[in-house]
Design a binder for these strands. Structure first.
Lengths: 232, 232
DNA sequence: CGACGATTTGAATAGGATCAATGGGAGTGG
DNA sequence: CCACTCCCATTGATCCTATTCAAATCGTCG
């Protein structure tokens, strides 16, 4: 595995507390693999054979029942997913697929569990990682249940805007179809939501968005760190 | 603290892997307290001063924004809540209140963190607990986003029925107002949902429910372990 | 017996979803 | 270089689920 990737992975909170020798051993058992866009990686119900780390690209976590489909979250570099199922040796509760060309690290679950028992520093890092993941899910639920779809979009835009330098413009990093799924609505509704936000200074040109009335938009969106912040 | 309660707490998965002396020390710092019904215990945004354990009664986790209110889950004995905030020394993301007369164990967060660093067995138990909590949230999201309110009610009834002996009848353990909140709907809608399920053999008499066409109800509800099961 | 809260029922509304049709690039092949 | 095709995005019309507002009913507790 290229050293540059090892460095990045080593820098993950998940592995930060780990003994160096143990980390090296764990990486021995791991695979770094490329995947094309729209490849389903795991299906809910499958046994949790691997722990996944998104090194590059983007992975969508979703669930399905009776033909209905719901996107839960997007996992972007560099972070791990389905840690919980791996640790409990339980079936995945979510499916995952790449949304774009991606590079993923696969670590056999068995090795993760062995190392988790052996290395207290790793165990502590996992706790931290899991606590963060838990809080992230709580935010997702709150975002979903306490806001309308238009408010969700407005807050998403404000957050992306802040992350991209807060210069009055932003570029959508994912296509609108995926964005709609992430925000829990249909693509049709996303179009309408954008139109609804026009009076608040939101203008759309493909993936480029301009926010010309930031304070108005903020007044409407009412972002709160208890939903929109990202845990350290 | 009464020994009988200590036993129960000691038996929690959260403390199972802990060294006996450490456990005793942690309990030294803890308080066991009674609370009346409908007492707000914590508010979202507050610093996480305590880890809570529900020894007896029931605690509702919820969140609010702009007058809107959403119940996330109910915590029933014997389990802990807000573990994540405690460990990260971060603000609570959810508020909590008793729904009935309850006894709670309060452990100062600082002591939990100290013990977590000192006792690898405790750290491992926390991982397990957190993984379970995470998976529980995933189920909650799936239940909420992939099902209609009527389907959620049907599945809730089936699960309660199974837990209460599967003898064709069940008794609601919580009042209908709280049940409606738990299922993510208004009390009015819960009434209508019950009415809608009548053709599937659901008859209501106060808190007593009879399920006379179990297979019909199951066909309608389509329960799946990927949403409705409880992790070990 | 009376009052209050909880539940049920009814009517109107809102937020989204679905179905259908139209426009708009990006990539492909001639 | 241009026409064609396909997929994505937008727009319009309609339907459905669930909320809101309002009122009636029920039950329980003083």
């Amino acid at each position: 595995m290229p050293n540059i990737d090892l460095e990045a992975i080593r820098g993950l909170p998940l592995f930060a507390g780990m003994d160096a020798a143990n980390f090296a051993e764990l990486m021995q058992a791991a695979y770094l693999q490329r995947f094309p866009p729209h490849v389903q990686l795991i299906a809910e119900g499958d046994p949790a054979d691997f722990l996944y780390v998104v090194v590059e690209g983007c992975v969508e976590m979703f669930a399905e029942t009776r033909g209905r489909r719901s996107t839960i979250e997007l996992t972007q570099p560099v972070s791990a997913f389905i840690v919980a199922a791996t640790l409990k040796d339980a079936p995945y509760l979510m499916s995952a697929r790449t949304t774009e060309r991606s590079r993923l690290l696969l670590i056999p679950s068995e090795d993760v569990r062995v190392m988790f028992e052996r290395d207290p520093g790793f165990a502590q890092s996992i706790v931290y990682e899991q606590a963060t993941a838990y809080r992230s899910l709580v935010r997702i639920i709150k975002n979903q249940k306490l806001r309308t779809s238009i408010e969700r979009l407005a807050n998403y835009l404000l957050r992306a805007h802040a992350e991209q330098g807060a210069n009055g413009a932003l570029t959508l990093a994912i296509d609108k179809r995926t964005l709609a799924a992430l925000l829990g609505m249909t693509p049709e509704n996303l179009s309408r939501a954008f139109a609804t936000l026009k009076p608040y200074g939101v203008t759309v040109d493909g993936a480029d968005i301009r926010l010309s009335k930031l304070t108005d938009l903020e007044t409407f969106a009412k972002p709160t760190p208890l939903i929109d912040a990202r845990d350290a």
